[in-house]
Amino acid sequence: MKKVFTAALVILFGVVLLFGLSKSIDIAGYGDGLIPGKAADAYINKNVTSGTGEIIFGETKNAETGSANMVTSVIANYRSFDTLGEVTVLFLAAVGVSLIMGKNSKEGKMKKSGFILRTSAGIIFPVMLITGIYIFTHGHLTPGGGFPGGSMIASSFLLLYLADENFKLKITGFKVAEGLAGTLYVMVGAVGLIIGGYFLINFLPTGVVGDLFSAGIIPVIYVLIGLKVGSEITGIVRDMHKEEVSV
């Protein structure tokens, strides 16, 4: 009876959602999200404050953001303040996990891992680590950025935990990296406030679109985010693993 009532409620909500959305969007259609006239138009052409014309890969100099990856230019430049909040939410989640899990949890024995996993982990771990670092240093040129790169670094440490049942991570370095990256992110914003008059404004030269050293503060911020996210998720993995092994 309760499940039927719940289902009816959910279906009612679905009908309301369907009719509410169909006023502004073709709910059955797909592939009609054309850009012109939307806010994204200014982000693609990098002309939020002043019209710079067409942006050509490898040619345009000193564009507004200089990032070839437009999603990155939104995340780490135009809406960087949102990303600061996002990083804060992730930080709070990591703090919550370590507060609940960290102290007075029993450490138990873990099952011995298999030969293939133990041997291959040593080969794959450096490759994963380097790939993670590559992803977040090239966030302004290729798909990816601080969040996927950081996650990849954390997953490489998860692999070490899975491969070796006696593996213990010295967490102090990660705590320092996390705190330092977070502080530097706010400092970069404060420097922008002093130089440009706005918090997190781009104050470095943006260079040629498509170069490794381009896009102003975007690579700086994405490296900081990558370090922060990597150390945070590694901390979460460590706390959860410590609890999970207690049988």
């Binding site: 999200g33 890969f57 939104v74 498509g210």
Partner: peptide
């Protein structure tokens, strides 16, 4: 929505990066 050597110009048809 990434400028590369193949999709080199901002006048090309990119999907919405904001979403």
């Amino acid at each position: 929505p990434i400028l590369t050597a193949d999709s080199f110009s901002s006048a090309m048809k990119f999907v919405d990066p904001l979403a």
